[in-house]
Structure formats: structure tokens, C-alpha cells
Design a protein around this nucleic acid. Structure first.
Length: 328
DNA sequence: CGTCTATA
DNA sequence: TATAGACGG
């Protein structure tokens, strides 16, 4: 879920058009999860091919990415590696919520309550090996770059932005700021109220507004609670900032509160400030493999040929231009 | 979630 | 041009 920093950031509105020509890093598990949970029919059943394979994620990746590239926005997908040990508790909690949801989904479906069924079905979405591998295969055929992180996708995606190799990270998760992303885009989506509430948060502005260093922001996060520690009961973002302003560090704040932390703060600092990242990534957009895409999506997974061809066209249009750009 | 279509 | 609904696989 990330840190609860909604109240202390000051996002600025931004238009989809302003992203023209920009490379954006996207936490792949994040978007794939959204496709898996959102792209369902009335009773909560996801999109499937005739063999029963789930295809919601392939549909989402294909049609979202092609539309972005048509708008000259270049998404780079960043896949999760191994999560830090400290995240175990957060992960276990998620698994138990998933189990509960599965039960409630089955109950609702049994009783014919479609609305409830759909709601709980969305929470049962699972990013298994097959989902991840099929997503990577599709991206490769599309000519869209992806990066396999060693650690958390969010950390790698943020690192690439901090290096200036990408312009912003697409995320709903404030962790990106602790990870050092200079810009994060919130409410990024294409359909419906597109760009209606698209927002950008600047790390520099955030730190300046709050009068904190990034190191101190991480300390505030630990007081509030992160995916890696529980946080102090009763301390939210605003109180956390006051404490760090007053005492300077997490340790001194804890001492003043007469509180202790269950884990070594330095271990969490390391996760946020010095994550194990890949540095030799390749962000080149390539020409889509048209025939293989048609084979894969229409042949293997029963996608509509006309719609698929349309999307491939959008990919081709821009890749032609982007490869041309690289000559200058 | 994202597309296309109907409707005003 | 903007919004609502049906559908995608």
C-alpha cells in the first residue's frame, strides 16, 4: 500500500499532452494488477480465451500501450524482483485479504449478487508466473522495453527517473518519493475521465515545501509506517514531520516518544536510499513484430483481428518516428 | 481498464 | 463535445 503521505504532498495538475515525447517508468505489477482486477464482466469473470487462459492483462497492455505510443508517450515497464525480507508481513496480509475475498466472491456468486461478486472478484486477482511471463512476451513482440528489477519494481522505476533516463514514474504509491523519483504521476489513465485529475508530484518541491531532506522523509515514513515496518501508533504524516523537525532523526523521535521499533531502521533506510538496482537497462523502442503479434494475440488468445491490427498500426507509426529520432 | 457507439 | 452503456476474450 505504501506510505500514507496524501495529506502532505501538493500535486499539480498536468495534461496528457504535456507528456509528449517523455519516457515514463511504470511499475508492471501495479498496472497488470489493475488490468486483472478491472477488466471483468458483470459477474466478476475476467476476460479469457477459448482455452480458459486469462487475457485481461494482455488486452490491457496491448491497447493501453499502443494508445500511449500513438500519443508519443513512451512507457517502460518495470517488473518486480525479489521483495526484501522485511516486506513479508505486508505480503502475508495481502495474501490473507485475497483468501477472504475469494471466499466472499464465491458466496456472492452463489447467491447471484453480481455487484458484490464483481467487487470481491477484483480483489482475488493474482500475478502468477504465467501472467508475468505472458506480459513480458507480449511487450517483447510489441517492441516495448521492459526492465527486470533485482528488488522492488518501484525502487528500480524510481531509480531510472532519478538518473534522468525516464521523466517520471507512474504510480499511486508515495514510496517512489522515498526511492528518489524526481517526479511521480498520479491518476494516470486513458479512459473515461482521462487526464481529468492527472497530477504530478515533484520530489524537489515536496522536500522544499516540507523543509525535509530525502533522508528525513524516509525517517518520517518509518514513523508513519511503511511496507517494511509498522510505524508508531497515532503518528500520521503531519505529526511525523513535526517530530523530525523537532528531533532531527527517527531514533531521537522514538526516544522522545518512549517508543521502540521492531526492526533495525538502518535496514529500511538501505531499502529506500540504496536499493540494489539494475544499471545496464536498454530503453530502446523497437519495431513491433506484426505477424507474431497477430499469431500470439489472435491465433493463441482469440483477440479480434481488426482491433489488434489497429493497435499494431499505432505501435508502428511511432516506433518508426522514434527510431528516426535516434539518428539525430 | 480501455474501446467503440449511441444519444443529446 | 461530453457523457453513459455495452463489450472485449
Amino acid at each position: 500500500m505504501g506510505v500514507k503521505f496524501k495529506d502532505i504532498t501538493d500535486p499539480e495538475p498536468i495534461e496528457m499532452n504535456d507528456l509528449k515525447g517523455k519516457i515514463l517508468t511504470v511499475d508492471a505489477s501495479n498496472v497488470i494488477y489493475k488490468f486483472l482486477s478491472g477488466m471483468r464482466q458483470g459477474d466478476g469473470t475476467p476476460l479469457k480465451d477459448m482455452n480458459g487462459n486469462i487475457t485481461s492483462h494482455l488486452n490491457g497492455i496491448m491497447f493501453q500501450t499502443s494508445s500511449l505510443i500513438e500519443k508519443e508517450i513512451k512507457p517502460v515497464y518495470v517488473f518486480d524482483g525479489k521483495a526484501p525480507e522485511l516486506k513479508k508481513k505486508t505480503q502475508e496480509k495481502r495474501i490473507s485479504i485475497k483468501k477472504e475475498s475469494k471466499q466472499k466472491y464465491l458466496e456472492a456468486k452463489q447467491s447471484g449478487d453480481n455487484e458484490k461478486a464483481r467487487k470481491y472478484a477484483a480483489r482475488t486477482a493474482e500475478l502468477n508466473h504465467e501472467i508475468i511471463e505472458s506480459s513480458k512476451k507480449l511487450l517483447k513482440l510489441m517492441g516495448v522495453p521492459y526492465v527486470q528489477s533485482k528488488t522492488e519494481g518501484e525502487a528500480q522505476a524510481s531509480y531510472m527517473v532519478s538518473k534522468g533516463d525516464a521523466w517520471a514514474v507512474v504510480s499511486q504509491d508515495y514510496d517512489c518519493l522515498q526511492f528518489g523519483a524526481t517526479r511521480m504521476l498520479k491518476n494516470f489513465k486513458l479512459s473515461r475521465s482521462q487526464s481529468k485529475n492527472l497530477e504530478i508530484i515533484s520530489l524537489e518541491k515536496t522536500l522544499k515545501d516540507l523543509d525535509l531532506t530525502r533522508e528525513q522523509l524516509v525517517d518520517v515514513a518509518m514513523l508513519v509506517g511503511t511496507d517494511f515496518n509498522k510505524g508508531v501508533y497515532g503518528i500520521g504524516a503531519k505529526k511525523g514531520i513535526k517530530l523530525i523537525h523537532k528531533y532531527g532523526t527517527l531514533e531521537k523521535s522514538l526516544e522522545a516518544l518512549d517508543e521502540t521499533m521492531e526492526v533495525d531502521p538502518n535496514e529500511i533506510r538501505e531499502i529506500f536510499l540504496n536499493p540494489d538496482v539494475v544499471t545496464d537497462y536498454d530503453l530502446k523502442f523497437r519495431r513491433p513484430k506484426k505477424e507474431k503479434l497477430l499469431d500470439y494475440l489472435c491465433g493463441e488468445h482469440d483477440f479480434d483481428e481488426h482491433r489488434t491490427n489497429n493497435a499494431i498500426q499505432k505501435l508502428q507509426l511511432k516506433t518508426a518516428q522514434t527510431s528516426l529520432e535516434s539518428w539525430f
